[in-house]
Nucleic acid binder design. Sequence first.
DNA 1: ATACATACC
DNA 2: TACTGGTATGTAT
Length: 629
Amino acid sequence: MTERSATSSEASALVIAAGDKAGMEGIDRTKIDEIILRESGDSAYMKQQRKRDQSVNEKIDQMRVKLEEKDRASSNWRRSIESELEPELRRLMASRKRRSTCVVVDMDMFYFACEALTRPELKDKPACVGGGMILTSNYCARKFGVRSAMAGWIGDKLVSELSAGKERLIHVPSNFHLYTEKSLQVRHVLAQYDPGLKAYSLDEAYLDLGPYVALSLKGFTHEQIQNELKKANEVSDDDADHLVVELEDEAHGLLGDESLDAFPQSVAIEATASIVRKMREQVCEATGGLTCSAGVANNFMLAKIASDRNKPDGQCVVGPFHEDVLNFLHPLPTRKVPGIGRVTEKTLHAFGIATVEDLYTNRALVNFLFKPATGGFLLRASVGCTCSHESNEGNSGGRKGISRERTFQSGRPWTEVNTRLEDIARKLSDDMSIKNLWAQTTTVKVKLDTFDVLSRSKTVKGMYLQKPEDLAKLASEMLHDLKKEHKGTSFSVRLLGVRCSNFQGEEQRLDSTQTSIQKFLTTNNESNEKSLSNNVSSANTPPCPAPRRVPPKKETPRMDSIQPPSPHMIQVCCPMCQQPIEGGNDNVVLNRHIDSCLNSSTVRAAVKEESVAARQSKKPRLTDFFGKK
DNA sequence: ATACATACC
DNA sequence: TACTGGTATGTAT
């Protein structure tokens, strides 16, 4: 009730990072929570968390009121909603895939495991990657409640207190070069099983093993299968549309789901499980000892959940039948479902919904309480018929926005804050120029001392922005507005961010089609002028200078903006982000660019882009994994 | 369209 | 002392 009386149980609801997702079952959470609360309960961060918790509570109260009203007005409304949902449920069931060939591969404590390769002595001591913020902890540290996204100093406290001073948490600084290298090794193996795999992050990949399993059951060797898969994948990457359609049908006949129909369910399942086992062994070999876990199911949501089940170094197969799916899914707490986070879990809990089965039995209530998008998502989740909604679908492969943000010491003089904003705008401009993005909308984000987050955005009509000056000017104006309009205290800034979105259509991009690593390696190293990454944007010749009137959408780019692939002016592409690098002939520029790509999220985004691009021409066998909408 | 909240790794 | 960064999407207004 009172502001200060944050009891442990109250806190563990939302404020304290509970043992929710992985690996922390069966540890003494009471003690851990107590320490975390004692150490950080008064911090601005925790105060903000409590504030958020409070607003969630208010929202829940409003929902309660809404429910009470409904109950007063009618006694039988649940029944009628249930029958309304009936057709949708039937549709979902009917569209369920009949084979479990979706695989999610998740590396075990990836960053830490990479570091432990060269420092095996870290394995049996509590250790983590990351200093101020913990990125990954090993299982030893997890026993003490140390987990990713935790502040480093809290991790220290937990370990030293819970070990009675006998142990210290070891921090290893992060090395994204290493993780990227290892991630590429992993993907190289996985691509042998599905060349069209999707990599969501450095440590997680989604595969469809349908074609591989089918060919394997037909007696093909690993090498033969690879050839077939490669052929099929190249086909769907081909631009010649008519050719794609024709050949896809052929490939579909050979590789599609129905080619598995010839085999009994149990045979296919066994084959898939053993292929996944082999694949995981191969990952371990190729990386010099990194282990991974895998989940297998008939859609990616279930596969994702399953990948967590037997972690570390384990796998879990969920059969495709209704009973298989529900036996696996229904006992789980709702939080296990990707897309259900802390807030949704707490909200559901407030209405007596703790497990996925509750979600199903209370589907009428859920449908009534939540907005259509969320309600629909929860309904699909309750019967295991959706993949996590963040695994995008039909988004034409293009990114929606790009941003940069940085945390720094708060309470700096206003002029310095402004300088920071300009730096960030300049970095963002560089990123955009590398990716050749031009945006109509700019958003500035401010996090205050209090951890309150404010944002302001502006879209300019008929104009596309990229230049650092333009971004900085807009962002700066908005920041000043925010400061001016901010009621209350101090406006002491701890984080600044700039985001651009609403991009110019992709079609008028000048696109050198060179994207492969081979091209990167074989490009000439003749250096032309060009300088450092800060100058990239000015060195770059934009498709249209900004700010300026937009050319009509159909207009082709000005010829002088296109760099013809003359022998000594070949576009160099980054092996990570696959984007052409202006001035990339210069090794300094190149290395700086690659460094910037090694920023984790940039890589993540790039990896994603690449795999999305690989799938751009849709393969029929994939459509119903992400189907819905 | 804009602001803010939730989620993911 | 001390609690990230980047992206997408949903909801409210």
